[in-house]
Design a protein around this nucleic acid. Sequence first.
RNA 1: CGGGCUGUAGCGCAGCUUGGUUAGCGCGCUUGACUGGGGGUCAAGAGGUCGCGGGUUCAAAUCCCGCCAGCCCGACCA
Length: 480
Amino acid sequence: MAKADERGITPQSEDFSAWYNELVLRAELADRGPVRGTMVIRPYGYRIWELVQSALDQKIKETGHENAYFPLFIPESHLKREAEHIEGFSPELAIVTHAGGRDLDEPIVVRPTSETVIGEMFSKWISSYRDLPLLINQWANVVRWELRPRLFLRTTEFLWQEGHTAHADETDAIAELDIATRFYEEISRDFAALPVVIGDKTASERFAGAQRTVSLETLVRDGRAIQSSTTHYLGTNFSRAFDITYTSQEGAVEYCHTTSWGMSTRMIGTIIMTHGDDRGLILPPRLAPHQVVIVPIGRDADLDRVLGESRELEAQLRDAGVRARVDDRDQLSPGFKFNYWELRGVPIRIEIGPRDLAAGVATVVDRLTGEKETIALRGLAQSMPERLEHFQQALYRRAASFRDDHTSVVDSKEELLAAVMTGAALALHCGDPLCEASIKESSGASARCIPRDGADETGSCAFCGAPSAYGRRVLFARAY
RNA sequence: CGGGCUGUAGCGCAGCUUGGUUAGCGCGCUUGACUGGGGGUCAAGAGGUCGCGGGUUCAAAUCCCGCCAGCCCGACCA
């Protein structure tokens, strides 16, 4: 691992991984737990998660879903009922075989996801077309024993939200997919300032047991893609396995069509890697625990006046609906505090010193551009929501240009392989899983999704030359 | 599971090659004074089963064997 400068963090360009790890730890977002791959989410990181949660929970409820809670433990036999599902998950299961002081008759799985328990319950709860659609969401922790953990991006245990719905037919289930995809898109764009590429997964990248998987992909600053959330149309695979049936209006017994969809604490890792720079985090205002930090500067009598003015401004900002905080720690120098809050990604910093006070102004500093402005104290608080909104949009635009600058349209094997070294590639593909596998083998890149907003296009596969499938280009990138 | 690396104070590390008596350094922490617009200065302090177990030796952080843990790069990964 590259060594950080005494005070700063390793630059992104030198070692992105080291940058990321140091940042997560130094910004006090999270710490490693005692069991390999586990993570303690510290208050600053957890607050970001709470802000994601409340925004998403509101959208989930507005669209008619209800929250519920299902058990952490699942009988192993349940998981085995859907063949592809168990096959996909078995390598990463944590299984309890001993409890209550003795060996268990049947092993119990710690949920890696809840399709099976929820399916079991759905089959009891649904009997008529009048019971449909059934729209349930759960906020929970899940456990997946991944081989290579990374803080927030892939932890042994993580927090998420998982939506599970049952519908009378495919049309209704697909409409549900669109609803879930839309609110993930809105959370990503409007709250996390993440430009996403949305599209279906290819067959080999689909969720275990799904007929369709739609993913939201983000391109982060080292040129890799990350799936920040995903929705699945499960067809009748799970309803056949768990006997989720209903009697239709015509009196026939039919299988339900089910969906599931999730967004996890990985979102925080995505935000870090999309927006962060060599000075630290840059948080989108709508998800920032502190949107504005006020640093009072001065001593003795000056300090009293400056602190008083800072507190007054803090109160005004709060009245204006801004999450503001005065950093009144008197043992720390202003310069220390500037770096401290920049590392933590606070969008706007306001400095108030004797010179400012004498002129009735404050110094306002933008975390994204580093620009300092002198602004009259009068009216400053009232204008802050608009300033934060501009910041939010500028952050989104910057990420969108980065994505565009690092996405190439490619038509040959050579171009494809070159493009994925520094970003994403849009290529026609034959649709053959074996061809996908060999792209992965030669470049490390995988098919992220088939972007739904791509233009209609056919031709030959950029990699192998066979006729293209899908009628559109496929997004390839190395991924987290 | 392969390849590489690392375990010494809260954090980051030196010391190990060539064993030696009180195990160092920087940051952080505590107290005080001065300071304060980009990571302040000085002074005085506190803080250690050198990852664990065994072995060699008069003597082990240092040499040997075994184990454990963690990180990085792969493989794997709704």
